[in-house]
Amino acid sequence: MKVNTTRFGELQVNKEDIISFQEGLLGFENLNKFFVVDPGDSTLILWLQSIDDGKIAFPIIEPKIYKPDYVAKLVPGDMKSVELESLSQAKIYSILTIPSDITTMSANLKAPIVINNEKKVAKQIVLQDSKLNVKHEMYKELKSYIVAFASDDSKRTNIENPVNTVDASDTANTSQSHGYTQAADRPKEA
């Protein structure tokens, strides 16, 4: 299907890449269908793009990139809510906030996006751990990670392994191989 987005133009999304958020996200309860867009830049940041509303997309990143010891401790009810039998079926992302002073960028560690890769159901799960922050500043950690592996593109594949995203870079049709959908053009603002 084709989806018109404000950020990436018109994207072609495979049915099997559509992720269903039965409860939406907090504050966006009416938006239930999303897909992941990979803009293909060096930041390792992906976008969780709404299908229902082309204007809505959330920048997301895997928390282990900037916080290797992060564990999303899911209780049985959480696992059930996204039909998970084991955490290995899941892909975990944090939503990012990028203010005008980018060095104060932050990630929501308290309420990660948990995606069941096989069933394509997902939820923003609020973790019980009271030490986790909704706005965890992580610019420094992300920078040191990116600088460390900037010269080694091969590592990138390992990090983004199993989730299906839409690749917004101009190399088309690799979506089959790694399961990411792709956009025809790079973001116009870039």
Partner: peptide
């Protein structure tokens, strides 16, 4: 946080 995040643009990411 969700509301703030939803207003980010690829230009923000480019800057970042």
């Amino acid at each position: 946080q969700n509301t703030e995040a939803s207003q980010s643009t690829p230009a923000d990411i480019a800057r970042l």
